[in-house]
Design a protein around this nucleic acid. Structure first.
Length: 589
DNA sequence: TACACTTGTCATTCA
DNA sequence: GATGAATGACAAGTG
């Protein structure tokens, strides 16, 4: 039975590979695979069925294995250091487990060939959906996929260079896969995400891999002994990330794969980048219950600082600019990144929590250096004001209530509290600028020690304002500044309202213009219809005229000549036969 | 670097 | 005359 089917299968496999090549050549043009051969699809369906059966067997085997591993991981979970993978995530990552870990495959005695790996990849990515295949959904965007799923991949890749059971071309293929820009971008995103979420590196290797994968473009060729310290479930995740990220047309991509560093063995790499980890985890193996015990042993050790790992990571050797890493470390404060107007999003900049650490003295110091780095802080500074809710509520309160609230929150943002929580053209960034602009007035007022808030100066009624002014002894400069602040504040609001009205007028006029255009088109159509109707009526009248005129006879029974006579009718409907000459005379009369 | 857009500010007019 | 609203014009910041 198998002797008969196998040759057939191989033949179909050859056809499939040939069509695969053709399809991958044209997939960039948007051609679907089914375009090439209809019979191929039938063969493909059969092949898929066979492979699905094989996969089911493999998956069943792997699931049993994973269950055992999960049971082992649960033991680690007692230490609080390891979180077991979800079954679904592992199920998605089971295909290539054997293929990616040569030692593991050898242990199972069920290693797949490179072609089989590629077939599994081709199945993983639906070939009849080139659009999706060309743009595989980054697994990092999939919440269901653990971050470590992707990040484990690069650390496992170098193992192929060490694995005598696998062909050398497989390593190159992995290098190509890892060199995919999309994959690297995704890995970098995962790296950033992981570093943002985790303050320390987990001993499970989830955060080791980010630091490693981040520099894959430059150093992905370096072999690593990471797989030796890697629990098998992470090796499983390798396949999941691979199948999720690698596009089926990867063979189309010609990449300059760096020479696999023969001078970099896994031990050298580990000594270079993970000296401590190597000392602790080298005895680890991927099989047996020893791993669990040793992993628990690692988990009890102090966690490795991710930045330390980054400093050890290959990126520092391949990157020409190690300085950004130092800056990145400073970004943990949450200020350096967001403080930059180029990198900070308006929403983040408006987040009061991030800028809450600035004090009044900070803003005053920053005010003296416009355009400098501190000026950016000056723009952030007013964001420590009340929240939007408080500002909105402030805008609705009376002046007295506002004064009361201002007493508690002296730095209430003036614009928001002035009843214009939503200026006409205000965006977040512009709102930030607006706040920064008014904060200068506030800082000027503070510099002159004006005992009134800018909001009070601007929004108080004249009587209340005068009363407040009379309560304080103000010098000339203070009075002038208060008048300027009040004038500018009111004018600013007026300008905003004016512009809003202008825009509303423009919108209204545009709408009116549209309606007028529609009316014009309707009238033109109506005119055309009327003209057509009139033309038809004239035609009918002419026909009727000729018909009636042709029926008229003189005394001799001869028809009247149309050149000598014509028919005319009066208002009462009476019709006369009038000679042409007489008709002319009648007209003249 | 040029350009468009937004916003703040000033000057002016009017009620 | 003082005040506020409205608006054109200009400058500065930003993408």
């Amino acid at each position: 039975m198998m002797e008969i089917e196998l040759p057939k299968m191989h033949q179909s496999q050859q056809d499939m590979d040939l069509i695969d090549i053709l399809w991958r050549q044209d997939v960039d043009l948007g051609a679907g695979r089914e375009v090439f051969d209809f019979s191929f699809r039938q063969k493909e369906v059969e092949l898929r069925r066979q492979r699905e059966q094989e996969e089911e067997k493999q998956q069943q085997r792997l699931q049993d294995q994973e269950k055992a591993l999960l049971a082992q991981l649960q033991l680690d979970e007692e230490t609080g250091e390891f979180v077991p993978r979800s079954l679904s995530a592992q199920t998605n990552t089971t295909h290539g487990e054997i293929t990616q870990n040569g030692a593991f495959a050898g242990h199972e005695g069920d290693a797949l060939s490179f072609d089989e790996c590629m077939q599994l990849l081709a199945e993983t990515f639906p070939l009849d959906e080139p659009a999706e295949s060309l743009q595989p959904a980054p697994p990092c965007l999939d919440a269901s996929v653990p971050p470590s799923t992707d990040l484990m991949m690069p650390t496992n890749s170098p193992v192929f260079t060490q694995n005598p059971l696998l062909p050398g071309s497989l390593d190159q293929a992995w290098m190509e896969l890892l060199s995919l820009p999309e994959l690297q971008q995704c890995l970098n995103m995962q790296m950033q995400e992981t570093l943002n979420m985790d303050g320390f590196l987990k001993p499970s290797g989830e955060t080791q891999n980010p630091s490693y994968s981040q520099y894959l473009p430059g150093m992905d060729h370096l072999p690593s002994a990471q797989t030796e310290v890697c629990p098998p479930e992470y090796i499983n995740t390798y396949d999941g990330s691979f199948s999720n990220m690698v596009s089926p047309n990867l063979s189309q991509m010609s990449l300059n794969v760096p020479d696999v560093g023969a001078e970099f063995g896994p031990e050298e790499f580990n000594e270079l980048f993970y000296p401590e980890m190597e000392a602790k985890v080298n005895p680890l193996t991927c099989d047996g219950g020893h791993m669990v015990h040793q992993l628990a042993e690692i988990s009890n050790d102090p966690p490795v600082n991710p930045m330390d790992l980054q400093s050890f990571s290959p990126g520092n050797f391949s990157s020409e600019k190690p300085e950004p890493m130092v800056e990145f470390a400073d970004s943990d404060s949450g200020l350096s990144l967001d403080s930059s107007p180029h990198t900070s999003s308006p929403g983040k900049s408006l987040n009061g929590d991030e800028s809450f650490g600035f004090s009044d003295s900070d803003s005053e110091e920053m005010d003296g250096s416009p355009g400098s780095m501190e000026s950016d802080y000056t723009e952030i500074f007013p964001l420590v004001y009340l929240t939007d809710e408080a500002q909105a509520s402030l805008s609705e309160k009376s002046a007295a209530e506002q004064r009361e609230i201002k007493a508690k929150n002296p730095k209430t943002e003036p614009v928001e509290a002035s009843g214009h929580s939503k200026p006409p053209f205000t965006k977040d960034k512009q709102k930030k600028r607006s706040e920064a602009r008014l904060s200068r007035d506030e800082q000027r007022a503070k510099a002159l020690q004006i005992p009134l808030t800018v909001d009070m100066i601007i929004n108080l009624p004249v009587d209340d304002f005068n009363e407040m002014m009379s309560k304080h002894q103000l010098n000339e400069a203070q009075l002038a500044l208060i008048r300027d602040i009040r004038r500018r504040g009111k004018n600013k609001v007026a300008a905003q309202n004016c512009r809003k009205r202008k825009m509303d007028n423009i919108v209204g006029l545009e709408s009116e213009l549209d309606s007028l255009k529609e009316e014009k088109e309707r009238l033109k159509k109506e005119k055309s219809e009327r003209s057509t109707s009139l033309r038809e009526m004239k035609q009918q009248l002419s026909t009727l005229y000729q018909e009636v005129f042709g029926m008229l006879r003189d005394e001799k029974g001869k028809p009247f000549s149309p050149n000598e006579y014509s028919l005319q009718h009066t208002a009462d409907g009476t019709v006369f036969l009038v000679p042409r000459l007489k008709k002319t005379l009648v007209k003249n009369n």
